[in-house]
């Protein structure tokens, strides 16, 4: 009973909580770096969600090895490899965009002397 509930929902709950926490940071915090931290947490949650909908109990990993057979009598028993491959590249893109965002943050700091969004807004007026 408990096990079935966990198998159905634990990863979904975890990913949605991460997305919610990241959204909370991006909406309320005023430091630019903190906002980028929030965006990174949202990204982790989304990746976890996409991999979680590829999994089911008793799935095996989608790699052929000597002892790991992916299909028995025409019935596939492996986890879904397609979302995994999408997430694999999305993580690397996430690092690139994070580096670009941080660079722009540093440039903003060099121009305005602060990382606070409100002060930057005031200085821009």
């Amino acid at each position: 009973m408990m096990q079935e509930f966990l198998q159905n929902y634990v990863y979904l709950i975890g990913s949605m909580s991460l997305i919610g926490i990241g959204l909370y940071i991006t909406l309320t915090d005023e430091n630019i770096f903190k906002i980028i931290v929030g965006l990174n947490i949202i990204e982790s949650g989304t990746n976890l969600f996409m991999v979680a909908i590829a999994w089911y109990p008793k799935a095996v990993m989608p790699i052929y090895t000597l002892t790991n057979k992916l299909s028995i009598n025409g019935k596939v028993i492996a986890a879904d490899p397609l979302p995994q491959s999408l997430v694999l590249t999305a993580i690397v893109i996430g690092l690139g965009t994070t580096a670009l965002a941080l660079t722009i943050g540093i440039k903003i700091f060099e121009k305005y002397g602060t990382l606070d969004v409100r002060k930057i807004k005031e200085a821009g007026r």
Binding site: V60, L88, I91
Partner: peptide
């Protein structure tokens, strides 16, 4: 745990390693 060792390796090398270092 979700049977995705490829993604696990990538996340450990990039998300936990390089991303934190760049921050």
């Amino acid at each position: 745990f979700l049977q995705a060792p490829d993604v696990a390796i990538t996340e450990a090398a990039i998300g936990a390693g390089l991303s934190t270092a760049i921050f």
